[in-house]
Protein backbone atom coordinates (compact mmCIF):
# COMPACT_ATOMS: atom_id res chain seq x y z
CA UNK A 1 0.00 0.00 0.00
CA UNK A 2 1.46 3.34 -1.01
CA UNK A 3 1.71 6.28 1.36
CA UNK A 4 0.72 9.61 -0.13
CA UNK A 5 3.18 12.34 0.80
CA UNK A 6 3.70 15.97 -0.11
CA UNK A 7 6.97 17.59 -1.22
CA UNK A 8 8.64 19.59 0.26
CA UNK A 9 8.47 16.73 2.76
CA UNK A 10 8.09 17.88 6.36
CA UNK A 11 10.65 16.73 8.97
CA UNK A 12 7.95 14.67 10.76
CA UNK A 13 7.02 12.82 7.59
CA UNK A 14 10.66 12.16 6.69
CA UNK A 15 11.29 10.66 10.11
CA UNK A 16 8.26 8.42 9.71
CA UNK A 17 9.48 6.99 6.38
CA UNK A 18 11.05 3.54 6.54
CA UNK A 19 13.25 1.76 4.00
CA UNK A 20 10.90 -0.26 1.78
CA UNK A 21 7.93 2.11 2.08
CA UNK A 22 6.19 2.75 -1.23
CA UNK A 23 5.21 6.40 -1.64
CA UNK A 24 3.31 8.59 -4.07
CA UNK A 25 4.74 12.10 -4.01
CA UNK A 26 2.75 15.21 -4.86
CA UNK A 27 3.96 18.80 -4.79
CA UNK A 28 7.19 20.46 -5.89
CA UNK A 29 10.48 18.76 -6.67
CA UNK A 30 13.66 20.18 -8.19
CA UNK A 31 15.66 18.40 -10.88
CA UNK A 32 19.43 18.36 -11.18
CA UNK A 33 22.09 15.92 -12.26
CA UNK A 34 25.87 15.86 -12.67
CA UNK A 35 26.63 19.26 -14.18
CA UNK A 36 23.98 21.10 -12.14
CA UNK A 37 25.30 19.56 -8.92
CA UNK A 38 28.82 20.66 -9.78
CA UNK A 39 27.56 24.23 -10.27
CA UNK A 40 25.48 24.23 -7.08
CA UNK A 41 28.50 23.22 -5.02
CA UNK A 42 30.76 25.72 -6.82
CA UNK A 43 28.20 28.42 -5.98
CA UNK A 44 28.30 27.45 -2.30
CA UNK A 45 32.12 27.42 -2.38
CA UNK A 46 32.10 31.01 -3.63
CA UNK A 47 29.75 31.96 -0.82
CA UNK A 48 27.04 32.91 -3.32
CA UNK A 49 23.30 32.27 -3.22
CA UNK A 50 21.88 29.12 -4.86
CA UNK A 51 19.34 29.61 -7.69
CA UNK A 52 16.61 28.26 -5.36
CA UNK A 53 16.14 27.96 -1.61
CA UNK A 54 17.26 24.38 -1.02
CA UNK A 55 16.16 24.18 2.63
CA UNK A 56 13.72 21.31 3.15
CA UNK A 57 13.54 20.59 -0.60
CA UNK A 58 13.60 17.44 -2.71
CA UNK A 59 16.02 16.93 -5.61
CA UNK A 60 15.32 14.43 -8.38
CA UNK A 61 18.36 13.16 -10.30
CA UNK A 62 17.08 13.27 -13.84
CA UNK A 63 17.77 14.60 -17.32
CA UNK A 64 14.61 14.41 -19.44
CA UNK A 65 14.32 13.66 -23.13
CA UNK A 66 13.08 16.66 -25.19
CA UNK A 67 9.44 17.68 -24.73
CA UNK A 68 7.14 16.80 -27.63
CA UNK A 69 4.60 19.47 -28.64
CA UNK A 70 1.54 19.26 -26.38
CA UNK A 71 3.40 17.42 -23.61
CA UNK A 72 4.57 18.74 -20.20
CA UNK A 73 7.94 17.00 -20.39
CA UNK A 74 9.67 14.18 -22.28
CA UNK A 75 10.47 10.81 -20.76
CA UNK A 76 11.68 11.46 -17.24
CA UNK A 77 13.14 8.53 -15.32
CA UNK A 78 15.87 8.64 -12.68
CA UNK A 79 19.59 8.58 -13.41
CA UNK A 80 22.24 6.75 -11.34
CA UNK A 81 22.57 8.58 -8.03
CA UNK A 82 26.12 7.49 -7.23
CA UNK A 83 27.53 10.13 -9.56
CA UNK A 84 26.09 12.83 -7.29
CA UNK A 85 27.69 11.33 -4.15
CA UNK A 86 30.64 13.70 -4.22
CA UNK A 87 28.29 16.69 -3.89
CA UNK A 88 25.49 15.28 -1.74
CA UNK A 89 26.83 15.69 1.85
CA UNK A 90 27.46 19.38 1.10
CA UNK A 91 23.88 19.92 -0.08
CA UNK A 92 22.44 17.99 2.87
CA UNK A 93 24.47 20.23 5.17
CA UNK A 94 22.74 23.33 3.76
CA UNK A 95 19.27 21.84 4.19
CA UNK A 96 18.43 19.47 1.30
CA UNK A 97 16.00 16.96 2.80
CA UNK A 98 15.11 14.38 0.15
CA UNK A 99 16.68 12.88 -2.95
CA UNK A 100 15.12 10.73 -5.65
CA UNK A 101 17.26 8.68 -8.03
CA UNK A 102 18.25 5.07 -8.52
CA UNK A 103 21.24 3.02 -7.52
CA UNK A 104 23.74 2.67 -4.72
CA UNK A 105 25.06 5.48 -2.46
CA UNK A 106 28.39 5.59 -0.65
CA UNK A 107 28.67 5.07 3.11
CA UNK A 108 29.55 8.74 3.44
CA UNK A 109 26.25 9.77 1.85
CA UNK A 110 24.31 7.28 3.96
CA UNK A 111 25.92 8.73 7.11
CA UNK A 112 25.03 12.26 6.00
CA UNK A 113 21.41 11.15 5.38
CA UNK A 114 21.22 9.93 9.00
CA UNK A 115 22.99 12.95 10.42
CA UNK A 116 20.71 15.46 8.69
CA UNK A 117 17.54 13.36 9.07
CA UNK A 118 17.03 13.18 5.33
CA UNK A 119 15.77 10.47 3.00
CA UNK A 120 16.87 8.82 -0.25
CA UNK A 121 14.17 7.41 -2.49
CA UNK A 122 14.31 5.50 -5.76
CA UNK A 123 12.06 5.74 -8.76
CA UNK A 124 12.07 2.80 -11.19
CA UNK A 125 15.00 3.20 -13.56
CA UNK A 126 13.85 2.94 -17.14
CA UNK A 127 10.16 3.57 -16.37
CA UNK A 128 10.60 7.01 -17.88
CA UNK A 129 7.44 7.32 -19.97
CA UNK A 130 5.34 6.11 -17.02
CA UNK A 131 6.98 8.54 -14.59
CA UNK A 132 6.46 11.44 -17.02
CA UNK A 133 2.70 10.93 -16.55
CA UNK A 134 3.00 12.07 -12.93
CA UNK A 135 4.65 15.38 -13.87
CA UNK A 136 2.08 18.15 -14.27
CA UNK A 137 4.37 21.14 -14.75
CA UNK A 138 8.01 21.70 -15.67
CA UNK A 139 10.05 24.89 -15.83
CA UNK A 140 13.74 25.64 -16.19
CA UNK A 141 14.97 27.73 -13.26
CA UNK A 142 18.71 27.85 -14.01
CA UNK A 143 21.57 26.55 -16.17
CA UNK A 144 19.49 26.39 -19.34
CA UNK A 145 22.69 26.14 -21.39
CA UNK A 146 23.30 22.67 -19.94
CA UNK A 147 20.50 21.27 -22.12
CA UNK A 148 19.27 17.99 -20.60
CA UNK A 149 21.25 18.84 -17.45
CA UNK A 150 19.49 22.16 -16.70
CA UNK A 151 18.04 22.80 -13.23
CA UNK A 152 14.25 22.32 -13.32
CA UNK A 153 11.34 22.90 -10.98
CA UNK A 154 8.60 20.29 -11.37
CA UNK A 155 5.12 19.95 -10.03
CA UNK A 156 4.18 16.31 -9.56
CA UNK A 157 1.06 14.34 -8.70
CA UNK A 158 1.39 10.82 -7.30
CA UNK A 159 4.98 10.39 -8.43
CA UNK A 160 5.84 6.73 -7.60
CA UNK A 161 8.93 6.03 -5.48
CA UNK A 162 10.25 3.68 -2.83
CA UNK A 163 12.28 4.59 0.27
CA UNK A 164 15.83 3.24 -0.01
CA UNK A 165 17.79 4.95 2.78
CA UNK A 166 15.75 6.29 5.69
CA UNK A 167 16.73 8.76 8.39
CA UNK A 168 17.36 5.96 10.91
CA UNK A 169 19.93 4.09 8.83
CA UNK A 170 17.56 1.62 7.12
CA UNK A 171 18.79 0.52 3.69
CA UNK A 172 16.41 -1.29 1.33
CA UNK A 173 19.11 -2.22 -1.21
CA UNK A 174 21.00 -4.08 1.53
CA UNK A 175 18.00 -5.51 3.36
CA UNK A 176 16.15 -6.59 0.20
CA UNK A 177 19.22 -8.27 -1.27
CA UNK A 178 19.98 -10.09 2.00
CA UNK A 179 16.42 -11.38 2.17
CA UNK A 180 16.51 -13.03 -1.26
CA UNK A 181 20.18 -14.03 -1.39
CA UNK A 182 20.93 -17.72 -1.78
CA UNK A 183 24.42 -18.81 -0.75
CA UNK A 184 25.99 -20.98 -3.43
CA UNK A 185 29.17 -23.05 -3.12
CA UNK A 186 32.30 -20.93 -3.07
CA UNK A 187 30.59 -17.56 -3.43
CA UNK A 188 31.61 -14.82 -1.01
Amino acid sequence: MEKKITSPISPDVVEGLKAGDQVLISGVIYVGRDAAHKRLVETLDKGEKLPFDIKGQTIYYMGPSPTKPGHVIGSAGPTTSGRMDAYTPRLLAVGLRAMIGKGLRTDKVKEAIKEHKAVYLAATGGAAALIAKSITKSEIIAYEELGPEALLRLEVKDFPAVVINDSKGGDLYQEGKAKYRIQVGTKK
Binding site: S65, G74, G77, A128
Partner: peptide
Protein backbone atom coordinates in the same frame (compact mmCIF):
# COMPACT_ATOMS: atom_id res chain seq x y z
CA UNK B 1 3.30 -0.55 -18.29
CA UNK B 2 6.08 1.82 -19.33
CA UNK B 3 6.67 -0.16 -22.54
CA UNK B 4 2.97 0.16 -23.40
CA UNK B 5 2.93 3.92 -22.80
CA UNK B 6 6.13 4.47 -24.79
CA UNK B 7 4.82 2.52 -27.79
CA UNK B 8 1.39 4.15 -27.69
CA UNK B 9 2.63 7.71 -27.35
CA UNK B 10 5.86 7.26 -29.31
CA UNK B 11 7.86 8.45 -26.34
CA UNK B 12 11.32 7.16 -25.48
CA UNK B 13 11.19 4.09 -23.19
CA UNK B 14 13.95 5.71 -21.16
CA UNK B 15 15.00 9.36 -20.98
CA UNK B 16 18.53 8.11 -21.59
Amino acid sequence: ENAKIAAKEQMPLCQD
